[in-house]
Design a binder for these strands. Structure first.
Lengths: 227, 227
DNA sequence: CATATTTTGTGAATCTTTTCACATCAAATC
DNA sequence: GATTTGATGTGAAAAGATTCACAAAATATG
């Protein structure tokens, strides 16, 4: 009865990102070695979980000696192919699109938005820091920069249409900010970011927490997970 | 050995949001009734999952008749307290903060950003559509509008400091866009949105998918979940 | 150099989530 | 109104994720 499968990023992978962020911070503070429980404390997971996650990605430490931060980061860079640059396109230069195009952290992590696209001719500026093209040039740019991943920040109504184009032009992964479930072939990875839901779920949980009589109710709503 | 627990929003709750978005769409299209497999098809989950989720939230349907969309939406509105208005504050009016403050979908769903805050005096504008105040007025505004939930879009470096203030002034839930793990008392709910990680994980999966020799590798990286 | 200590790494146990399978009910059909 | 059909709702089974518990290894100590 299922019409399409969707790949979902595993928790363990998400946690690896947490660990890495934490390692980068510790390195800046001059720390050279970590133990699984250091990372556990900093990220809120359990130390066994850290080790289990590492073992899933075949990351080995030194018994008694813990892990060298530099070594760990290098392994992670390799796992994530972060040594290479990655070219991204961004479609939809509304408020959110503009903010994302200026988000400096992407560049810091070797993810370059090489071009953005918008149907509004008034927004199109080829001679800008990051150029804003007409969607007619999508294929050309995707081909030229060998782009495989796109950020979708267009209105809900045109999200599927743009997605179909992107997929046709060879895009294999999309971070989608439009609140729709995109339909794509099984080899295309979609990561939905729904800002409303993020806010709404917090409001919901807060409300429940405030009005909850016993803890029984809460258990229905959250997992008491330590991540 | 754990230093703080963190509540994480359950998958079933996240899926309820999916269902609702879908129901709203179907309603606009003039549909009046749905079956569990309609929702399943539209959202990519299995129909048993839909029913199990509903049963978790004590949502009942009609055997053979499925579910009335209106009824379903009403129940969900009640569950989510969406009939009431919710006042939100937003701290940090950088690119992302500005975009979020203009995000019309929040208002459509009864979530009103009543005020924003930024330390930069040049950004402070009290007579604007949504006023931008100095953080010195945080307590005053939070008290006046009985705000319980905040959006945090400040730089990494000041995120914890601002969080401590927010918590002191009575904020019980935070949507955090800064890439740091905030430390808060156990009754405060944090929802982290890390834009870099979202993009990076897609890049990672795409890369793995492209270079994967067998399907064995893939299984390590994704769950073949149908959500 | 033997012993004690500390941390990793992982199989087993537990807990959670998802899927299966089918009884149960409501509507449609004969 | 009896029978068939097609959906829900939910225990039971399976799959998946997390925690426990402890052997193995590396370092420190006496």
């Amino acid at each position: 009865m299922k019409r399409f499968t969707k790949y979902v990023i595993k928790n363990s992978l998400k946690r690896i990102f947490l660990y890495r962020a934490c390692l980068v911070r510790l390195k800046l503070m001059g720390v050279e070695k970590v133990f699984s429980y250091t990372l556990a404390n900093e990220t809120g997971v359990s130390s066994e979980q850290v080790r289990k996650d590492f073992s899933e990605f075949s990351i080995k430490g030194n018994k008694r000696g813990g892990y060298e931060i530099n070594e760990l980061l290098e392994i992670m860079e390799n796992i994530f192919h972060r040594n290479k640059d990655h070219n991204i396109v961004l479609v939809g230069m509304g408020n959110l699109g503009i903010a994302l195009s200026k988000y400096s952290r992407f560049v810091q992590r070797n993810m370059n938005i090489v071009a953005t696209f918008d149907i509004d001719p008034f927004k199109q500026k080829v001679r800008s820091d990051i150029p804003v093209y007409t969607p007619a040039r999508l294929k050309e740019i995707i081909d030229r920069f060998k782009v495989k991943v796109a950020i979708l920040a267009v209105p809900e109504i045109s999200a599927q249409e743009v997605t179909d184009q992107l997929v046709r032009f060879g895009i294999k992964g999309i971070v989608n900010f439009a609140p729709v479930l995109l339909k794509v072939p099984p080899d295309v990875i979609i990561n939905n970011v729904n800002l409303c839901d993020e806010l709404e779920s917090v409001i919901y949980c807060v409300h429940k927490q405030i009005t909850a009589e016993g803890s029984k109710n809460l258990e229905l709503l959250y997992k008491d997970m330590k991540y």
